[in-house]
Amino acid sequence: MAREKTEHIVVSFASTFDAMEAERLCQEAGVAGRIIPLPVEIDSECGLAWSMPADDAALAAFHAATEGHLVPEGVHRLML
């Protein structure tokens, strides 16, 4: 069954370690989202990415949770 695509914010990372740290920090802070395989549209050092709703508040919460721990490689808005 076809799934309707919706806009997401996708954060890419320099390493798998950063991706797993982002997941840990976001889960601890209650930030919505989850780890997904890196979408083919993104060129990144890491094969994993953090996907969250296309919502500026969610992105702000992500940055607040991860600031000082890691620097995302890129932040993208994609239809997934």
């Binding site: 798998t16 797993m20 997941e23 840990r24 395989p37 994993l48």
Partner: peptide
């Protein structure tokens, strides 16, 4: 296998390896 997929089982491995690094 850590970093070889994003399924629940692969992420379990990745979390474990990352946890050991920390």
């Amino acid at each position: 296998s850590s970093s070889r997929g994003a399924s629940a089982s692969d992420l379990a491995a990745a979390r474990s390896v990352a946890g050991a690094r920390v």
